[in-house]
Design a protein around this nucleic acid. Structure first.
Lengths: 326, 326
DNA sequence: CCGGTCCATAGCCATCGCCTATAGAGCTAA
DNA sequence: TTAGCTCTATAGGCGATGGCTATGGACCGG
């Protein structure tokens, strides 16, 4: 029974004999006994049904067949060595890949984190997929994406039972956002719920967790918002704000990055927006996934400490974009 | 003790699981039991110190490391398969090499045989080395050449004890050769030994077996040859003949290929020249060597049958060059 | 002819590959 | 929530294997 024909060990034995022109010297070099070498190479020759070595002279030489075969054997061993190195490079993160799912909102928020990750691990390829929140949850569950960046408080019970686990990234205050030409632009005094009901709004549609978050707030406070436009495009929302007539509700970190778009507080206050990483619970995680989650964990904790409930300073993103301050 | 890490068997097990996404189905496909597969792959992962398969879901999938590694594993197995095919192709003579040693005389005689061999086995590279007879014998003994084409009756006793074996190639009559302008050119009547002693000769020097053959003949018949020029160059001999003054002794097959060079018989007749293949006795012979010796055996037998003691027809080489007449 | 060197074989033994039996986890349907 | 089914991992047994030492036999040089 040829269980171990052409094992790397046998190939190395052959190559050593070819190099040293002697079973005895090759055996010494390989730290095995000469009879071991003799027997193993004999079995290799028998399994290949060809004589690889010419033993008739004083020194051992490769036959024509042996010459041909050692070329292939060397390349085969080279592939195995390269394979071993490659998987260890993967483990030390000099190479790899990562699939991230994000909504348009979290795409915006996480961009600095992605940039930081790529700076730190340039050999890892990150592919990001923009999708609605529900698709992120199912994508993680079905292993179509490695990590989702989503809102926590809207995770479905189905997601929770699907073996999804969460890791806090950061908490974001939400406020009314208006363009420069809007009559509320620049006012320090918060809007009350009655005034809020009078404002025509442009909002994301209900595919998005942010929208559902707003709907829940309105339901809880008995507010009937005046929704003029619904869309699935954040860009569309920003453009409409600039026209000056409509308002929207957005995380502060997005607002402060838009030219001539202003925050206005709402009372009662909108619950803060919690951004989390979601991944499959108790399943294999690649080194790249683990590295991203580690980076995000350190980054998010710093982020949380630095965001006050009501901000008077510059855009929080400039603080968050420099995690190396520690 | 990791005796058999990365054996082709383990690699094939891994590739099968990756393909079937199931240990059970892969085991069925490989005709081993499922626990065997499970254990062998576990050992491979332990030896590489990395997890290659993600078993956490309902179907088994490769990890990132696994994806990387199977590429290398496939190529390694491909090299081994190719190596196996290549050595069997070698055995079927689609590739190989052959080193031949010949004297200037036998080089001439064997050229049609070489041409025939190359026609039949175009994948085999033949390298010919021209050398004196003694060098042919020692070259074979020391395995610097695979086969020598030499004269039999001058083999030394040393060569015979050196484990040299011989195989008859063909027997060649020797005669006086003269140029067109020589006074004996075209005469049908043989020269007797007295007239022969008067003729100035150009001969090869005593490094060459042909020369020693001629010296032995003269000694046996008490003839004192008139040797005007000695050389180690057959070309020189042919050029000197053309000048018309000198004669030489050559195999008929060389004479009939020279423009305006004529044979003249000598009485008593020179012993025929026996050309043989010499090779190392009881040592490894490559498939290419065996094939050459087989072809020469069939060719030489045909050659011997076709050469009469005194020729009246065209050059024997044209007969010998067509061994496919059978 | 003798002594030394080197490869091949014999016999022994620890380890291995493969088996069957079965434990345990996970999933689905009732 | 529970039972049944499927699939992977582990336990234990056994024949096969890789490696050892001892030694036979061939070959070479003095």
């Amino acid at each position: 029974m040829d269980r171990n024909i052409m094992c790397p060990r046998s190939l190395r034995y052959l190559l050593a004999v070819a190099e040293h022109h002697s079973f005895t010297r090759a055996a010494e070099a390989l730290y095995v006994s000469q009879p071991t070498l003799s027997q193993q190479i004999k079995q290799l020759e028998e399994s290949l049904d060809v004589q690889l070595l010419d033993r008739s002279g004083r020194s051992v030489r490769l036959t024509d067949a042996g010459e041909v075969y050692v070329g292939y054997a060397r390349r085969a061993l080279g592939e195995l060595d390269a394979g071993k190195r490659a998987i260890h490079e993967l483990q030390d993160l000099s190479r790899g890949s990562l699939r991230l799912g994000m909504t348009p909102i979290t795409d915006y928020l996480a961009a600095p984190l992605l940039d930081n990750f790529n700076t730190r691990y340039p050999g890892i390829t990150v592919s990001t997929l923009e999708m609605p929140q529900d698709d992120i949850e199912s994508g993680v569950a079905e292993d179509n994406i490695d990590i989702g960046i989503a809102f926590t408080n809207t995770l479905s019970t189905e997601a929770r039972s699907n073996g999804i686990e969460t890791q806090l990234l950061f908490i974001e205050p939400l406020n009314i956002a208006v363009g420069k030409a809007h009559h509320c632009a620049g006012q320090e005094e918060p809007l009350n719920e009655h005034a809020f009901e009078q404002e025509p709004l442009v909002l994301l549609n209900s595919d998005f967790a942010l929208r559902r978050h707003i709907d829940l707030y309105c339901l809880e406070h008995n507010i009937s918002p005046h929704i003029a436009i619904e869309t699935n495009s954040l860009s569309t929302i920003i453009e409409v704000l600039r026209l000056g007539r409509l308002a929207t509700i957005l995380p502060d970190s997005i607002v402060c990055r838009q030219h001539e778009v202003y925050s206005v507080m709402l009372l009662p206050e909108l619950p803060h927006h919690t951004i989390t990483l979601i991944s499959r619970k108790e399943s294999y995680k690649s080194p790249a996934s683990l590295a991203f989650m580690d980076l995000a964990a350190g980054w998010g904790v710093d982020g949380c400490r630095k965001i006050p409930s009501h901000r008077s300073g510059p855009c929080p993103m400039s603080e968050l974009c420099d995690p190396d301050e520690d």
